[in-house]
Design a binder for these strands. Structure first.
Lengths: 230, 230
DNA sequence: TTGAAATTGTGATCTAGATCACATTCGGAT
DNA sequence: ATCCGAATGTGATCTAGATCACAATTTCAA
């Protein structure tokens, strides 16, 4: 730590202004983070960022400098295999969730990595990473929050893994449709068969056929660029 | 909890003796945990446990009461699908590593959805869960250790996931053999084809045939219950 | 030594999906 | 209205592995 210079240090630490919108967002979506002083700190250093549907949020070739608290919309996290241009959906992050994989996101091995895009128009509070660590010691609720979030990411990953390992495409497709519907808070999914096929690392034809089957069973109805869960 | 008997409580809290073996094991395998007072606490509450090869350490559905710090051998972590009795290997934990799945299990106080067995004769330091949490606030190095361990488990999980999602059985088999060889610090693997097939969620016949191919390519040599990497 | 069980080898099907090759339909720009 | 490209439908192969059905081999215990 350097010797504090009167005029500078107080500004950074004390008089930096809080963003009142952030406080209310945290109160609304992250009720677990109930310590007022923590909420204030978040409001001081957090930055609100918005993304339009389809926008790429992070390409993890580079280091991650902030952890996102999702307050609106939904963020799609996908694993990519560059060689054959393949990919699989890992999970969606919805409002109230975060991805605190602070170290790992960035430094996977190089030939394949993780991409996150806005599945919907989305809004996040970006927390610079150094605070993520500081707060771990200062605020028990933050610590719990981070641990809990690590845990649920882990759980989702394992769930995804065993869908892929154990289940057939029809079942995976159905689960996928449910997830997307949930992410959008709507039973209407705007998407082409091709996009779905990509997310599931399957062929477009296979997906089209399986969707037809679901339609015949009365589980969904199909239109161009649109699937309605019934 | 029973009513404390005078002579017992002080022993447990203050004069409990440290296990000197634990201190040296921590120093050797967990250099990151460098705070002396942390090492002492570990030596006080940690319990050394040994498992013979093949022994089940924690089964699917059981409650986790301690977090293992692996100091010898290797622990196999497997995900099970009860219905069809299928399973997949998630990863091995080697000396110097710990299982963050167990963190989440105990912190969330829920049943395990994985099974862990000793892949080799193994030794762990078992840390009762309540300390795991206490230390998070007390010891920065412990906190970092836990976070880092979550991270690396996560990475392994993602790696496993994309092997399953993107790769064919021959490649998965080869990676598997390398992992096991590494886990045993030996290029000789004692195992039946059936066991391998289980770990990869494949059929025994497929594995036998692929192993034959690898042998023909000169990558391995095969004997009963034994595979030698060349 | 002689079973008997565990392990491995091998061929014959069978199946989910991939891949290929198109035909059809829809919807928006001109 | 019409044209073009994107989205979807559909059939014909092809392939990795699963599954089934055994045979052959090894190990070990009685």
């Amino acid at each position: 730590m350097s010797i504090p210079i009167k005029t500078v240090v107080p500004r950074q630490i004390d008089t930096i202004k809080m963003n009142p919108e952030i406080i209310s967002l945290v109160k609304e979506y992250f009720t677990e983070l109930s310590e007022p002083s923590l909420q204030e700190e978040i409001a001081k250093v957090g930055v609100i960022r918005e993304f339009k549907e389809g926008e790429i949020i992070m390409n993890f070739g580079s280091f991650v400098t902030a952890v996102p608290l999702v307050v609106k919309g939904s963020i799609k996290v996908v694993r990519e295999e560059e060689e054959d241009n393949k990919e699989v959906l890992l999970y969606f992050l919805n409002a109230g969730e975060t991805c605190s994989m602070s170290f790992s996101c960035c430094m996977m091995d190089k030939r394949s990595d993780i991409r996150t895009t806005a599945e919907d128009d989305s809004k996040i509070i970006a927390i610079p990473i150094k605070h993520v660590n500081d707060w771990m010691s200062k605020y028990p609720s933050w610590r719990n929050f981070v641990m809990r979030s690590y845990d649920s990411r882990m759980q989702e990953l394992v769930k995804t893994l065993d869908s892929i390992a154990f289940k057939k495409m029809d079942e995976r497709l159905w689960e996928y449709l449910l997830k997307r519907s949930k992410a959008h808070h709507s039973n209407i999914i705007h998407s082409t068969h091709q996009t779905i096929a990509n997310d599931l690392n399957a062929s477009r034809e296979a997906i089209s056929r399986l969707l037809k089957q679901l339609e015949k069973k009365g589980a969904i109805s199909l239109e161009r660029n649109k699937i309605v869960l019934l």
